[in-house]
Design a protein around this nucleic acid. Structure first.
Length: 433
RNA sequence: GCGGGCGUCGCCAAGUGGUUAAGGCAGUGGCUUGUGGCGCCACCAUUCGGGGGUUCGAGUCCCCUCGCUCGCCCCA
C-alpha cells in the first residue's frame, strides 16, 4: 500500500516549527492591540464570484490559481486565495462600513494552486491589516508603520520598503493608454511574456524580470509623470509622513501590484535574504473595492504579510543571533513514577500542580511504566528542570523525592512531604525565562 | 503550465554493475522490575520513491512515472 501523503504544496508544521509561528502571531497580536486594530475572522470558503469581482478576472490569481469547485448545491465555491475580498465582503454584509471607519486584522491560511518553491506553498498563511473608511494619507502612513514596526520588533534584518503611487483610476487609465501605445511601438524588442501582457495587464510589463526588457523600459513613459496634481500631492504627503516617522523607504516607479483593486499608494517590504520570492509584506490602497463589491463608496488601505517567508527570516535572524531563540515548550517538572500506589499519587499530584491558581507548573507525567532509570533518562531529555520521583515507597509515606536534573547524579536530592513540596514557591520550580 | 537539480530506514549518510545494502543519531528491550549526562549487548531497510527495460548479474546503466527542491510565470 502506498503511504498516504499530504497534498503537494500543503505543508505540515511540526513541533519544531510551531514555536516560530507562535512568536510571530503573538508579536503581531500585541502590535495590533497597541494600535487598536480589531480581529476579524472570515470563512475559508467563499462564492467564486467574490474573488472574480474583487481581485479581477484578468489576474493570474483568479485566472489560473484558484481552488474552485462546485458544492453539493451546485454553487461555485473557492478556497480564499487572499484575505482582503472576504474582509470587505463581511464588512459590507454586516454593516460595519456603515458604522464608521474600521481598523481590522486577520490571519490564517490562503490557497493558491501554484508550483511550490522557496517561500511559496499552495496553502500558505498571511496576517493582514485592513483600514476601511480611511482615505487620509496619514492612514497610509500608519498602516505601513504598523507593518514596519512589527517586522522590526521581530528582529528581522535586511528589509527594505519600496513605495510607489499608482494614481487614481483616471490617472491609471490615461497612463495605460500611453503605455500600451509605447509598448506596441516597441513590441518587437519585448520578451514574449511582456508581449502577452500588453493585452492582458500592460502595467505589469513594468515589473518584468527580463533584463533586456528592463533596459528598454528606461525609455518608456513613466507612471509618475501621468499622475494628476492631486495624486501627486497625495503621494507627497504619504512620503513626508514616512519621513517624519523615520521609516526608510525607496521609491520604485516599477512597483505595480498584481491585484486589480490597488490604486494610489502601493508598497512592498522585501528582503534580500529570501531567494526569488522576496516580498515579505505587500499592500496598498484600494479605494474602489468596497463599492465594487456592492458597498458604499469607501476608501481603504491594507497589507498582507506572508508567514512562511517571515518564518524563514525569523529563523535566519535567530541563527545570526539578532533575535533570541525560540524554544520548544519544555516542562518545569517531569514526574517519574512507578508502582500502583506511586502511579496513582503521581497522576493526582501532576494535576494538582497544573491547577494551583497563580502557581501552576508545566508538568510532564511519565506514562510508560518503565524502570526508574529509563524514566530518569527521559526526564533529563525532556528539558525539565526537576524530576519528581514517586514510587510506592514515597507514596506510601506521603512523600516525594525532588531531584534537580542539572546537577550531578544523586546530589541535591530532597525528600519532602507532599505538602512541603506543594508549599515550595513556584519560582523555585519553574524554568528560567 | 515551462525549465534545472535530487530521490538508499523517522533524521543524517556510505555505496559509481558482482554474491548477505556500511556507519552515526533517534527509537525499543536488556545488563540494573528503585535511581540520572556514561558504557556494554541485542533489535531496528527481504530492500534502495514506483513501474518497465538492458545484463549471467542493477541501489548503481536506459526509459516512463511519482515525489521533493530551486527557478520562470505570478504573488505574501
Amino acid at each position: 500500500m502506498k503511504p498516504l501523503q499530504s497534498l503537494r504544496g500543503m505543508v505540515d508544521l511540526l513541533p519544531g516549527q510551531t514555536p516560530f509561528w507562535q512568536r510571530i502571531e503573538a508579536t503581531a497580536r500585541e502590535h495590533f492591540r497597541r494600535a487598536a486594530v480589531e480581529e476579524i475572522r472570515t470563512p475559508l470558503l467563499e462564492v467564486t464570484e467574490l474573488f472574480a469581482r474583487g481581485i479581477g478576472e484578468a489576474t493570474d490569481v483568479v485566472g489560473k490559481e484558484m481552488y474552485s469547485f462546485e458544492d453539493r448545491g451546485a454553487r461555485s465555491c473557492t478556497l480564499r486565495p487572499e484575505g482582503t475580498a472576504s474582509v470587505v465582503r463581511a464588512a459590507i454584509q454586516h454593516g460595519l462600513v456603515a458604522q464608521g471607519p474600521q481598523r481590522l486584522w486577520y490571519g490564517g491560511p490562503m490557497f493558491r494552486y501554484e508550483r511550490p518553491q522557496a517561500g511559496r506553498q499552495r496553502q500558505f498563511h498571511q496576517i493582514g491589516l485592513e483600514f476601511l473608511g480611511h482615505g487620509d494619507p496619514r492612514s497610509d502612513v500608519e498602516a505601513i508603520a504598523i507593518a514596519w514596526d512589527l517586522l522590526m520588533d521581530l528582529g528581522v534584518g535586511g528589509l527594505s520598503l519600496e513605495l510607489n503611487s499608482l494614481g487614481s483610476p483616471e490617472d491609471r487609465q490615461r497612463y495605460r493608454a500611453e503605455l500600451v501605445a509605447w509598448l506596441e511601438a516597441h513590441r518587437e524588442r519585448l520578451d514574449p511574456d511582456s508581449q502577452q501582457r500588453i493585452a492582458t495587464n500592460p502595467l505589469r510589463v513594468l515589473d518584468s524580470k527580463n533584463p533586456d526588457t528592463q533596459a528598454l523600459l528606461a525609455g518608456a513613459p513613466a507612471l509618475a509623470d501621468a499622475l494628476s496634481g492631486e495624486s501627486h500631492e497625495r503621494f507627497l504627503r504619504v512620503r513626508q509622513g514616512l519621513e517624519a516617522l523615520a521609516i526608510p523607504f525607496e521609491l520604485n516607479p516599477r512597483l505595480v501590484r498584481g491585484l486589480d483593486y490597488y490604486g494610489h499608494t502601493a508598497f512592498e517590504i522585501t528582503s534580500s535574504q529570501l531567494g526569488a520570492q522576496a516580498t515579505v509584506c505587500g499592500g496598498g490602497r484600494y479605494d474602489g473595492l468596497v463599492e465594487q463589491l456592492g458597498g458604499p463608496p469607501t476608501p481603504a488601505i491594507g497589507w498582507a504579510l506572508g508567514m512562511e517567508r517571515l518564518v524563514l527570516l525569523l529563523s535566519q535572524a535567530m541563527e545570526a543571533g539578532t533575535q533570541a531563540p525560540v524554544t520548544a515548550a519544555q516542562p518545569d517538572v517531569y514526574v517519574v513514577n512507578r508502582g500502583a500506589l506511586g502511579e496513582a499519587c503521581a497522576l493526582e499530584l501532576a494535576r494538582c500542580c497544573r491547577q494551583r491558581p497563580g502557581a501552576s507548573l508545566a508538568v510532564q507525567l511519565d506514562l510508560s511504566g518503565a524502570g526508574f532509570d529509563k524514566q530518569l533518562k527521559r526526564a533529563r531529555r525532556s528539558g525539565a528542570r526537576w524530576a519528581l520521583l514517586l514510587g510506592d515507597e514515597e507514596a506510601g509515606a506521603g512523600q516525594v523525592r525532588l531531584m534537580p536534573l542539572a546537577s550531578e547524579a544523586g546530589s541535591g536530592d530532597r525528600v519532602l512531604s507532599r505538602e512541603a513540596f506543594l508549599a515550595l514557591p513556584p519560582e523555585e520550580l519553574r524554568r528560567q525565562g
